[in-house]
Amino acid sequence: MSKRTQTIPNELIEALLAERPRPEELLGNDGLIQQLAQQLIARSLNLQASQSVTPSQAQLSHELAADVGNVGLDSGAPPPTKRASGRGRTIPQGLDTKIMAMYSKGLTPREIQEQVLDFYGVDLTPAAISKVTDAAADEIKAWQSRPLDVVYPIVYMDCIHVRVRDGASRAKAVYVVIGISITGQKEAIGLWISQHEGAKFWLQVLTEIKNRGVQDIHIACVDGLKGFPEAIATVFPKTTVQLCVVHMVRNSLDFVSWKARKEVALDLRPIYTATTIEAAAQALSDFEGKWDAEYPTIGQAWRRNWAQLTPFFDFPKEIRKIIYTTNTIESINMSLRRVMRYRGSFQNDESLLKLLYLALRNISRRWSLPVHDWKAALNRFAIQFGPDE
């Protein structure tokens, strides 16, 4: 369906330029062009509120509004009021990065086609859009095989499950490994896809990590998968395996009604924030005394996993605080699930890996600062684990 092309009245342009702004006042981060674009998009979003839009369209509109400073004159994309003729197969300069950004937020090629047409006036085929995103394949290979640091003080390992069609729709396991480097920076170490989660495949992942240069991991935070600690010990025998407290609390709350969740979470906190293992054991007993009648499985689960939950009591508070308050892997998995939720399933492993990599690349751009209080924790790591740092 054709769209009406609007011409900006000269009177409006003259009014905007009445105070003779300098070029840098037009194009800067707070310049006139950006302010005008933001207000126009904001008005468009207000109009959308009264219309029927898909969740992905609404999400993208808000993100484009926030990112409008990067869609300026240097983007190479044609102005929104100018429509490219025909079904385009050639991507205008600068538009490929916008297509990648949209794809990384979970939009399909057809949804991107609609957004590119609406926002940039360019009519591209889904095949042309897929070709742009396929360019990430070489980048993924280089990223997945890049050399890693020699030592990681903390590594988080977890798995999420996604449906992939690939002939017949089936659930597959995506292995996610995030490290905290010596400088305290979060780093996405890698992504792997397998038929299902298992300690045997984790052994392959750990071996690959070692082959890429990692000689030691001080603390590995993992879920409660059977055989996982043994797999880690095979490749990194000096590593302390710590069952992720965030996972344990989350799994505990799965048994609890919404009404009682906040209170149960507060009563679990004294267990993992205790100063000694004896105090933690007493806190667990106190929890059981209060909640066993209603939720007996919670106390049973904590006791069953006690040996994997308590190693961090051997560490000073600076390190322990990092372990139980840094819900790095949970936050990342939540972000990855968010970009996948509109897809339902993926055509194959390659399309799944492409989206997850691009999404993870976006997430990692926000990791500009070391984790909180890292300097104090690093000093304790140096004492606890020797001179490797």
Rank of each mutant, 00 (worst) to 15 (best):
G94P: 06
E389R: 08
P21T: 03
Q113H: 05
I189G: 10
T275K: 13
Q204T: 15
T90E: 11
R338H: 02
D267M: 09
W291K: 08
A307D: 15
M102G: 01
V151E: 10
R43T: 12
R269L: 13
R170F: 00
I41W: 06
P126F: 03
K317V: 12
A376C: 03
P387T: 12
I91K: 06
D349A: 09
L40T: 09
F119Q: 13
K186R: 15
G224F: 12
P370W: 07
S345R: 04
V132H: 02
D292F: 05
K82H: 15
D349C: 01
F313Y: 12
A37R: 12
W143A: 14
E208N: 14
H161S: 07
R320N: 09
G299D: 12
T5R: 13
E350L: 11
L45S: 03
D388P: 08
T108R: 01
L16K: 06
K290G: 03
D223T: 12
G213L: 08
V177M: 14
C159A: 14
N327I: 02
V151H: 15
S2H: 10
L203Q: 15
R320M: 09
E187T: 15
A66T: 07
S50F: 00
G167S: 07
A274H: 09
S130K: 09
K262M: 04
K98T: 08
Q195N: 12
S345N: 10
G344K: 01
N251D: 10
D67R: 11
G224D: 13
A233L: 10
T234W: 02
K226V: 14
F385M: 08
V371P: 01
I99K: 02
K321Q: 11
Y295P: 05
I332Y: 05
A199R: 08
K200A: 12
T276M: 07
I8W: 02
A15C: 06
I189P: 10
A301Y: 09
A279N: 14
E19R: 07
I41L: 14
P316R: 00
E24Y: 09
V164N: 02
S85E: 15
S130V: 01
S56H: 01
N333P: 04
A293I: 12
A37W: 05
M1G: 07
N46Y: 01
L17A: 06
